[in-house]
Design a protein around this nucleic acid. Structure first.
Lengths: 260, 260
DNA sequence: GAACGCTGTTTAGCACACCTGAACACTTAA
DNA sequence: TTAAGTGTTCAGGTGTGCTAAACAGCGTTC
């Protein structure tokens, strides 16, 4: 009997695999790390970490440098290529995001949903674009971004409830929506307008506009957005100009993807 | 005592992790697969595969679709982002590869070595470029490509020996070098000329030119190459024009990277 | 429509694989 | 030299991740 004291969630299925994934996650956060460092981080013995790292290295998933420190291997790129190929509209979205970034001079991105998280699949920077800690592959919660709310607004309510239950409504800034009902009310507006806004809900001083891309059945395939500093985006630009540009791009993608 | 009958290589360290990595590899090859399919592929029981998949899914590394079939998750992109950031000259190489592709009208690429394999980190297509099954993240053996030989030529001999021992000299076409001594002779020429050629050694009808990028210590950071159909690349182009273009790009990268 | 054949899922139970803790070899610093 | 680090190895027992079989749901087929 496991002392009936496991944390609220289900027991993890395969402990050894969980340990390996924890090691990978530690390496992802730190970039480079040694055996002892990882062992204390994830709370297992040094010997265990060592054996896992050897197994991962034999499979080219990690690389050991000359100082016996470990980092992630390039094999992950190979694997992620296959993962990416499951998103058929990606190529269309890329050309549109490039156009949006160029025309707006701001930062533009294409994001899809997976497991209740937003995953950024493409970014383009306009001439005046802000620098944010955003990269292809970046995962973020859905409730505090423009793309996120654009996507949530077009998922079945039960699905949204499940996502909130799993991921919560963590507060990023004082403008982040942390109340369930407030969120659902705003999602209703997003649905009416076909547009979602992020008004400093993720990072202070940063705003964004986003719109969902849907297939012929009405289910969301992803979302486009433009992000910029609140100082530069006055009412006219933020409420008219940029939304119009996004909607035009969304249209192009939707038309071209149905013809596939 | 393990019956002294393990295959020639070392026993695998952690079996459970190895199983999970085999599952990931199966999904990478097939794109999408069911529990039974994977189980027969890698030779373990259905229950085992199921438990592994649940663990992987809880960590967002795989996704289950509505038909109970599994595919790789986008989380791999996040991980590979960190893996990629370890290659500092990548951004420089990208702009040069773009230039090469545009000027040559052929396909150009940037490749680095890891664990004795070549990993393609960037591709660009010129207007006339051939379509090859090549993508960012693609791994290939070093002995039958232009980039591969360019890199091998500038590694210590013992390192090259070790790589051959591990990966072998598999025959891709009738032109592939499969003899150890012949390879070392050609690497000597590559070193003299600063250029490597692939004359239909990977795919019949496909040729390539490549050159290594080195740091101030003389160790290789990667390689650039141009690939095209043998029909289009006559002597003049293949032996002078393209090599000159590549060498110029290599120079630019080397100069700009030392200033970092 | 019931029996089949195919899924993915669940369960029982046991061998053994994976963890831990400590010892080891080695480098760097004091 | 000593000490405090590191990564690596090892013995050993516990608990875990295997296997095999049964279960539950689908479609298809006869």
């Amino acid at each position: 009997m496991p002392s009936a004291a496991d944390p609220p969630n289900d027991r993890k299925r395969i402990q050894a695999v969980q340990t390996t994934l924890d090691i990978i996650d530690t390496l992802r956060e730190r970039g480079i790390a040694g055996v002892t460092e990882i062992a204390t981080e994830i709370g297992v013995s040094k010997g265990t970490v060592y054996n896992h790292l050897v197994t991962l290295e034999e499979n080219d998933y990690v690389v050991k440098d000359e100082d016996d420190r470990y980092h992630l291997g390039l094999r992950f790129i190979d694997v992620s290529h296959q993962a990416t190929s499951r998103v058929p509209i990606l190529e269309l979205a890329k050309t549109e995001v490039d156009k949006l970034a160029e025309k707006s001079d701001e930062m533009a991105l294409f994001t899809v949903e997976e497991h209740g998280m937003g995953v950024c699949l493409y970014v383009a920077y306009g001439d005046q674009a802000v620098q944010t800690p955003l990269y292809v592959g970046h995962r973020s919660e859905l409730h505090h971004t423009a793309v996120g709310k654009a996507i949530l607004a077009h998922l079945p309510r039960e699905r949204v409830e499940a996502i909130i239950d799993q991921r919560g409504l963590t507060k990023q800034t004082e403008h982040t929506i942390t109340d369930r009902e407030t969120l659902f009310e705003q999602l209703e507006e997003v649905r009416k307008r076909g547009l979602a806004f992020n008004e400093q809900e993720t990072i202070h001083g940063l705003v964004g506009v986003g719109a969902p891309i849907k297939d012929q059945d009405g289910s969301v395939l992803g979302a486009l957005s433009i992000i910029g500093p609140s100082s530069r985006l006055d009412e006219e630009r933020f409420q008219r100009e940029l939304p119009d540009m996004i909607m035009r791009s969304v249209n192009i993608i939707e038309i071209n993807s149905t013809s596939l």
